[in-house]
Amino acid sequence: MSILTFVGAGQMASALSFPVTQNGHQVRLVGTPLDRDIIDVARKTGFHATLKRQLPPKGVKYYQIEEITAALDGADAVLCGVSSFGVDWFADNILPLIPENIPLLSVTKGMIDLEDGSMITYPHYFASKLPQGKKLSINAIGGPCTSYELADGDHSAVAFCGDDIEILRMFKQLFESPYYHISLSTDVIGVECAVALKNVYALGVSLAVGLAQGPDGTGIQHFNSQAALFGQSMKEMKNLLLLMGGHEDNIIYGAGDLYVTIFGGRTRKIGALLGRGFSFDDAISELEGVTLESIVIATRTARSVRRLAEKGIIDLSDFPLLIHVDNIINNGAAVDIPWKSFETEKI
């Protein structure tokens, strides 16, 4: 039996307790300062308030953040379960506490843009934030997987990525189950870039959902326009993946993640509201209290692309959907899909 300490009691981290405990291992679920109520309720009833599922009755112990030292004592591995908004908190408060011999696996999807226009993955960002001289194996999960369906045992196929294939194989043994299927890759940039970008483009495709629904939300859903935007999304995502140094094969994880995100979740909601004619501020107000990581990654990606275009490294016209999404959320533009700019002529 291995002991895994999950830091962050969000939906995905908590859902991962199912395959781990079913494999006979123990999970120590540690809430962040924002998860106090989740941990309190789970301790009393085993029910996860936001995942809306009973967590495994055996093999899960619950800890508040001030009990982190006890939760890490004797652990064989650590899982980072915070959202993009908690990345700096995790880097500043948790990374220094993890012993060098304990590998880290992160569920957080996203990237950070730098002043020179480049972007780095969260694993690389975590590595840059380690105390001087400290080394830590930092790995991540990417791919199409919603937390509630994972908790229900629906078949899911993901990728674990990191620099050391042997550590990835160890993680696979801990997490793999008859319904949780895990591929392994040492192309951290490729996997992490692909799954981060899906947030940008899921919002873009969801604009078509709202346009079909109309201002009152009663219109019939159209699929041609969604499919067209999906295709344009894949084209731009592939170009960005190669630009950032990832292998194009990993686009499959972004494609799957894009597909599942379009069919439900927070990003679909904000995209549909914008498509129906809501201003960005009104759409955000409508979804008050909902964490929207898609806005963060869309802003960062567009900022990176604009900087690279200014340097003449890329042509901004190669990313019309990304730039339109950025103009909507950051410049107050109305939804007006740039259909003509998607057309090509191949000889």
Rank of each mutant, 00 (worst) to 15 (best):
V30W: 07
Y253S: 05
N224W: 12
S137L: 15
S206Y: 02
G110T: 06
T50M: 09
S304A: 11
Y253P: 01
K44I: 11
V191L: 00
V188P: 15
E286M: 12
K129H: 10
G8H: 15
L4K: 00
T291D: 02
L292Q: 02
T261P: 05
L274V: 04
T69W: 01
D318K: 09
M1D: 09
Q132D: 11
M170L: 14
F18H: 08
V82Y: 07
E100L: 04
W339Q: 01
S17K: 07
G264Y: 05
L308Q: 12
L203H: 07
P144I: 13
L287T: 10
D257C: 08
S106L: 05
L197A: 04
E66G: 08
K135L: 11
G231T: 10
D116V: 07
M234D: 01
V290W: 01
I189F: 04
I94R: 06
P338S: 12
Q11M: 14
G59D: 05
A302L: 02
F223L: 13
L243G: 06
A42I: 06
L97Q: 13
R169F: 04
I112F: 11
I120V: 15
S233P: 04
N199T: 11
C193L: 12
A194E: 09
S83R: 06
F230K: 09
M237K: 07
F90S: 05
R276F: 01
